[in-house]
Design a protein around this nucleic acid. Structure first.
Lengths: 208, 208
DNA sequence: TCCCTTTCGGTACGTTGTACGTAAACTACG
DNA sequence: CGTAGTTTACGTACAACGTACCGAAAGGGA
């Protein structure tokens, strides 16, 4: 009974994600989200506990977009596909991805994804500590790659930006040039494959 | 000539890092740092461009603490030691480490560290794309491990926290239990070693 | 119809980053 | 020794933020 809500929690989630995607993380304010929904700031608190909860909602929205790939025959390929799927979604939402890095990701959709990866790894010959290390490696590769790719996400800053091409860091500059010659997805796939080689006994480095 | 500064930029850096270490990231405000130095908020702007610059200063302070390990005979061990050194420092400053994940790390000390890692990798047989992938793998493993370790950094939240031990995520729960049986450092070492196995042809998985 | 429950939304307070203006402290020159 | 010039310090002030509080509005059950 009582007065009917003007919008649902899911609508808050959508509005927040759209706002972050279009105008960056700084635009994620209670007032902006409320305005997007055509209401006052305090109305949000009926659907969301506080600002941290709103951020968690955005993170959850991002991971909810992950589409579980159709299982490949090879276990290694299945794992790789799963990692790439997660990576793709995070790449599609670069601003929101920063939230993923900062917050503890206890969003249900994120946990579900982690569980899926853990289960997939469990179907291999890995057990115990080796299994744990494998999981950490893959998770780290996803998170770390996103972090590396995120670097140029911030616009402007042309003044402050330090040029790596300068002669101070020749090895870094060479790597930077090398990375410019590939697509980010291919680079990530190779990264995950390398990780799998180190982690799965049966994976062979031939196909790199 | 002119009026002498009351404190140096380095003092601002120190005060900011101490503040973050002791009272968390939320305590990193212009006013708090200024108070720590016994002055008004606006005085800071003589030494720091804006808040983002202050954060960059903290990140730089953290990476400046990395002590370059004495080179081991084995290249793989040298690389591993370098990664562990970086990881240790980030672990020593868990709150500041969050800044590292969010901001673009263009701090000179961070670039210097990356350059060192790139140079070290360059002494192996790796070249071109393999070299790039190796670099990305190691960097990702550091960043990703820090992100995983950072999870319980936030205090409180006992209400909101989702228990992974619940039966919803059995595979994750098993991994969580498994990780409780090791020290974080050993887990990170094993993670890096696994990464090296996948990346360096000559590294053998025997010593895991 | 009246009440009870739930949600809406306006007002308001404390805190944040920082633009602006003025006072203060030093050097150099006459 | 004073005066001009230059650099820094710092108080005031404002917009925007998160959110506590509370009356108004809207619908269901008696």
């Amino acid at each position: 009974m009582g007065r009917p809500p003007k919008f649902s929690r899911a609508q808050v989630q959508n509005a927040a994600l759209v706002l972050v995607d279009q105008h960056g993380l700084d635009a994620l304010t209670m007032r902006n989200v409320a305005a997007e929904l055509g209401t006052g700031p305090m109305t949000l608190y009926g659907h969301v506990q506080d600002r941290a909860d709103l951020e968690a909602l955005v993170v959850d929205a991002v991971f909810s977009e992950v589409e579980i790939p159709t299982p490949a025959p090879d276990p290694a390929t299945r794992i790789e596909d799963l990692c790439v799927a997660a990576w793709k979604v995070l790449r599609r939402h670069p601003h929101a991805a920063r939230l993923t890095l900062t917050r503890r990701t206890d969003a249900p959709s994120a946990l579900r994804l982690g569980e899926l990866l853990a289960v997939e790894l469990g179907t291999t010959t890995l057990t115990g500590r080796r299994l744990l290390v494998a999981f950490r490696v893959l998770l780290s590769l996803i998170v770390g790659s996103i972090e590396s790719d995120l670097a140029p996400v911030d616009p402007g800053d042309d003044e402050r930006r330090v040029s790596v091409t300068e002669s101070d860091y020749p090895a870094l500059a060479a790597l930077s040039a090398s990375s410019a010659r590939t697509t980010p997805e291919q680079l990530f796939r190779d990264t995950v494959r390398a990780g799998l080689v180190g982690v799965l006994p049966q994976a062979s480095p031939d196909n790199i």
